[in-house]
């Protein structure tokens, strides 16, 4: 029982990070039917930017950490805007074409190389703003940063969903996501929506990077794993449904922790096989609804 509680808690912390990165995949996919293959690298760059900011300011961590998060978030957004303008908008020819995939994969290579040149090849320690005293929840424990990540993820995803559902901008965004041509006829500029969506996804990635940094520390090569996990969460959640993505991300985190306990080394293979079977049964994800094909 203790173990179950522990892996549920550990899974929550993992899932929270996946949820934030996965929302970034959702917003770009909804607005442009593309996603950024370099999303993982943007996440890591966010972490590096936060780290550099903290190191540069050299103040008390309570002050520099929020500033670091801010820089990571803005840096991620700026980077994603550049990616959208340079590598996505000029080449993307719709969902069934694949040019954007190659160009954003190219961007991933560039960013990876740039990180090892600008920062380092080493895994770098990220300071622990909340210390390392384990917080006990009954028999199980979490690091303070893990608790912070869960709280922050709830706030961020909550804010995002609030904006999407309650504001003029969010409505315009959902209109583009629902039907781009119709939205354009209504006077919504889908190009700006695409830029905005990429900026938002970059910001989410940068934020996720600076949140996850204190837990994982930072390594230039950790982006791919994050991207794959976030992508699984986005897909299993049914990519058009932000709430579904949150649920899927948390389930994924818990499944990962649980399978780790149950079958150790076979975890990844089993998890992925389960996902293939699951998508075979529900081709539109957990909460995605099959669109009735208009003939």
């Amino acid at each position: 029982m203790d173990i179950v509680l522990q892996f549920i808690l550990s899974g929550l912390a993992l899932g929270a990070i996946y949820a934030v990165v996965a929302q970034g995949i959702y917003v770009t996919f909804a607005a442009t039917r593309t996603f950024n293959f370099a999303q993982g690298e943007v996440t890591v760059i966010g972490a590096f930017l936060a780290l550099s900011t903290i190191g540069f300011l050299a103040g008390p961590i309570g002050v520099t950490f929020p500033l670091g998060i801010l820089v990571g978030l803005l840096g991620g957004a700026l980077l994603a805007i550049i990616i959208e303008r340079v590598a996505v908008a000029p080449v993307s020819g719709g969902p069934e074409r694949h040019e954007w995939l190659v160009s954003t994969a190219g961007v991933a290579f560039i960013l990876l190389n740039a990180m090892t040149v600008i920062w380092t090849r080493e895994t770098v320690r990220f300071p622990k703003p909340f210390g390392e005293q384990v917080i006990q929840f009954g028999p199980a424990g979490l690091l303070p940063q893990e608790v912070f990540v869960i709280v922050a993820a709830v706030v961020v995803v909550g804010l995002l969903l609030l904006v999407l559902e309650r504001t003029q901008l969010g409505r315009a965004f959902r209109a583009v996501a629902f039907n781009r041509e119709a939205a354009e006829l209504m006077g919504i500029d889908s190009r700006w929506m695409a830029v905005g969506a990429y900026a938002l996804s970059g910001a989410l990635a940068g934020l996720a990077g600076s949140l996850v940094g204190p837990i994982t520390n930072v390594n230039a090569y950790m982006g791919l794993n994050l991207l794959i996990k976030a992508f699984i969460a986005a897909i299993v959640g049914g990519i058009g449904n932000p709430w579904g993505i949150v649920v899927a991300a948390i389930l994924l985190g818990i499944a990962e922790a649980g399978l780790s306990y149950a079958i150790g080394a076979w975890r990844e293979a089993a998890l992925l096989a389960l996902i293939i079977i699951f998508l075979g049964v529900r081709p539109n994800g957990l909460f995605g609804r099959a669109a009735v094909e208009k003939v």
Partner: peptide, 18 residues
């Protein structure tokens, strides 16, 4: 720098020869 250069080339080819 080979990784970065490969990336630049991939992006360029897609921009110029979509």
């Amino acid at each position: 720098y080979q990784q970065g250069i490969r990336g630049v080339l991939l992006v360029l080819v897609m921009l110029l020869l979509p």
